[in-house]
Amino acid sequence: MKGIVFTEFLELVEEKFGLVMVDTIIEESNLPSNGIYTSVGTYDFAEMLQLLTSLSAHTNISIDDLLEVYADHFFEVIKRNYAFFLEMYTDPIELLASIENHIHKEVIKIYPDAELPTFEVVEKTQDSLVMIYRSSRAMYHFGLGLMNNTFDHFNTTATIVTEILKEDGTEVKFVIQKT
């Protein structure tokens, strides 16, 4: 998993819960990297899982909710550092529909070894989109958060219904309807 996910995650933990919480979850977890992350590095996804579990335990917030909050934060990172992605689109549906074919291709240019989830577009109209998320990371809540942020960014609203296709969350259907 790309280092930027870790560094931004820890940034968020420090911002929301303080440096002590950062130190606590790092020290509690058994991390091969010893909690030392740089955005250009690559680290085992299991470390992120440990950090999330530990944080959830200390804050009594579910991992899914944490991921959504993290998504809010990460979207700000995107706006700050990668605004040109967002500028290319005028419509959130168009943006979401082209994650797979366009945005991820751009990501690969910057991080050639990135392992990205796939978003298969099943159905698309002017105001609706049905996509299937597939990833061994089972982090669809992170995706859900990013999607909500996307609609906010374009000053639109939408209902997004998720349907778990595989129990472990590695395959999820997103049904998006603009409101």
Partner: peptide, 20 residues
């Protein structure tokens, strides 16, 4: 805690320098 955080930051910087 701060010392550890700093230590991590330094180490991260070295790590990124090596990568770069």
């Amino acid at each position: 805690i701060l010392k550890r955080a700093l230590q991590r930051e330094k180490e991260a910087r070295r790590q990124s320098e090596r990568i770069l």
